[in-house]
Computed example of a mutant assay.
Amino acid sequence: MQIIIQHNSMVPIYEQITNKIKAEILAGQLAEGMALPSVRQLAKDLKISALTVKKAYDLLEEEGFTQTVHGKGSFVLAVNADTKKEDLLFKTQEELEIIIKKAQQAGITNQEITEMIQLILEG
């Protein structure tokens, strides 16, 4: 598993970690029962705080992607990809709605929002 952190991104580091691991689980690259790197090891590898990694792992567990066994580590759970994808789509839609409302309140036009999204998708 290779995680690349973008420090200049508006997405918090813990969310970048969470998103990458979720994507690998949904793609089948991380199979059920596989152990994730320890919090300390991943923090060391990424040169970030262990608390940031812990926050990402807690979020993964909360969303049903992993299970943490005290003293043993975090392990990938069986995931129904269709169900999880639908859940992720719903959460993404909710977040986009919030962002679009904020942008519109700031006077950003729908065309400008569309152009920003297109730039992000191309980036």
Rank of each mutant, 00 (worst) to 15 (best):
A103Y: 11
F75E: 01
V79T: 10
E112N: 05
T114R: 09
I100D: 12
E63A: 07
E94N: 12
E97W: 10
I100Y: 08
L96H: 12
G71E: 03
K72T: 06
T114F: 11
K102P: 14
H70D: 13
Q104C: 13
K84N: 00
E97L: 15
K91L: 06
V79D: 09
I98H: 09
L77T: 02
K91V: 09
T68Y: 07
K72E: 12
T83E: 10
E112V: 00
V69P: 09
Q111T: 13
L89C: 14
G107E: 01
V76H: 07
V79R: 05
K84R: 00
A81K: 15
T92G: 02
E61K: 08
V79L: 06
G107Y: 02
N110E: 14
I100H: 08
E115H: 10
E62W: 03
L77K: 05
E112T: 09
L77G: 00
T83I: 09
I98W: 06
T66G: 06
Q93Y: 05
F90V: 13
L77W: 05
I117A: 08
Q111W: 05
I117R: 10
N110Q: 13
I113C: 00
H70K: 13
A103C: 15
G73K: 00
Y57Q: 04
M116Q: 14
K72D: 07
E94R: 14
S74W: 03
K101W: 12
A78F: 04
I99F: 10
D82N: 12
K102E: 15
Q93D: 08
G64A: 02
I108M: 07
F75A: 01
N110R: 11
T83G: 04
A106S: 10
L88G: 15
L60F: 01
S74A: 05
G107D: 09
E86H: 10
E115Y: 11
L88Y: 14
K72V: 01
K91R: 10
K101Y: 09
L60Q: 01
I100K: 04
E63N: 07
E97D: 15
L77P: 01
E115W: 08
Y57V: 02
A106M: 08
A106R: 03
D82H: 11
V69W: 07
T66N: 01
S74V: 02
L96A: 12
I99E: 11
A81R: 15
I108Q: 08
Q105K: 12
